[in-house]
Simulated scan of single mutants.
Amino acid sequence: MTPDIKQLIELRHWLHAHPEVSRQEINTAEHMRRFLTEHAPADQIIQLDGAGFAAVYDGKAPGKTVMLRAELDALPIHEINDDIPYRSRHDGVGHKCGHDGHMAILAGVAQTLVERPANGSVVLLFQPDEETGTGARNCSQHPNFRTIEPDFAFALHNLPGFPKGAVICKTGTFASAVKYVAVKLSGKEAHSAQPETGASPSFAMAELTLKARELQAAYDTPEAYALIVPIYTEMGVQSSGVCPARGEAHFTLRAAEGAVVERMCGELAAKAKDLAKTYGLALKFETKEEFAATTNSQLAFDMIGQAAAATGSTLLPIDRPFRWGEDFGEITGRYEGGMFGLGAGEDQPDLHNPDYDFPDDILVNGISIFSNLARIALT
């Protein structure tokens, strides 16, 4: 069956207008399930973690299983696209990563599967919580996931800054390992005229931030980048007479290899422990989010290249991984597979910009590449 692009565009616009952030994608998941029931009924709907679910399309004969993934969640970003009729109806929430487009692509693949494959099974995973790094992990560890156990798993991500419809890929790490940590320090308030009578986290936080810069300089090389970025600090009250007792600093650490992130995190934690002891503070070192590196096997890269060629798409190999994290690494770490980028246009706003809007005219590209990947995987 040929995908109904007009219908899929309407679906994408509805999703864009009704975004839900991670762990709250109940209405989004229900809408997708209704769409599949009405337009591309699956043989099974398997409930997974949170709002996540998998739609299974079984072939006419037994064979391998290939899984294709799309994300359900939006971002806590206020949309400024006042000129589009399907603008987000929820202030402070928007599909600024293009996950609305990813869902519409997977719905289009479902329409092609109304006529089942000759053999094997195609599993369409509608996954929650990608933006927090927990969705893929929790879905793949869910007891119901054992009924899927794919032989191959693939995902795509739209990429502004690249020609529309181009396929961007590489072997090895495609998207970086990322860890988001919070360092919380607590001591004792004092009069700011007598700070020595209390225990303030102020200098400890300043020294820790400088340590983060030193660590980045030590690990960041021309061959393999590393980043430690302070992203949030909070301390004290707006009162001239109070020397604060509590403060916290948050950092994101990222690199192409998870082992590098772990070493940097270990050194940052050790420095925080030393500073807490020096300044007489209690310390809590908390990992808030974590993304495993998304890695592509050579076989998966070759299959993505074959699918690109079959659709007449330009394949653009890249030399370095993207710096952003993607929780699909939890799946490529367990199963053979890979991730590729789908060019969204060279003049588009960047991902996570408040004016980003997934371009409808690349829906057909994503559907074609995914469909060909499924065909190749089941051959």
Rank of each mutant, 00 (worst) to 15 (best):
K6Y: 09
L363E: 07
K179P: 12
D274K: 00
M32V: 11
A309S: 08
L159S: 04
S140I: 15
D274S: 06
D82G: 11
L11A: 10
D220R: 08
A17H: 04
W14L: 03
E257T: 03
A204K: 09
L106A: 10
C265R: 15
H250V: 13
A218Y: 07
Q298I: 04
Y335L: 02
K184F: 05
L227G: 04
N158D: 07
G92N: 12
A206N: 08
E257M: 06
F251A: 07
N353E: 08
N296F: 09
Y232E: 05
G325Y: 15
N353H: 09
K164V: 02
G161E: 10
L48E: 13
Y335V: 01
F340W: 07
F251D: 12
A344N: 01
H102N: 03
P41R: 12
L378K: 09
L156T: 08
H99I: 03
L68T: 05
A166C: 06
H157Y: 09
N27H: 07
L210F: 03
D129A: 15
P163S: 14
A199F: 09
G337C: 07
K6G: 11
A272N: 14
E115V: 13
R375V: 01
P244A: 00
K271Q: 14
G59C: 07
Y279G: 02
E248F: 12
R116N: 12
E234K: 04
E330A: 14
R87C: 12
A70N: 05
K6V: 03
S176H: 10
I231V: 15
A61D: 04
I77Y: 01
H250E: 14
T311Y: 01
L253R: 13
E130N: 14
R87S: 09
S371D: 12
E196P: 07
D361C: 08
A155V: 08
D360Q: 05
F358W: 05
G325W: 14
C169M: 10
N158R: 01
V237D: 11
V122W: 02
G63V: 06
G333T: 15
H352M: 01
A309Q: 14
K277R: 04
L156H: 07
T171V: 03
G236R: 09
I148F: 03
F340Q: 01
N138A: 15
L315G: 02
A259Y: 08
V237P: 10
F370Q: 11
K164L: 03
Y356W: 00
A107W: 03
F152T: 00
M303P: 10
K170S: 10
N27P: 00
F358L: 00
D4Y: 06
A42R: 04
V183Q: 12
S368T: 08
V183D: 10
E336L: 09
I5T: 10
T252D: 14
T132M: 11
M67Q: 10
V178Y: 13
P85W: 04
P230V: 13
I376P: 03
P230Q: 07
I168G: 12
F328Q: 09
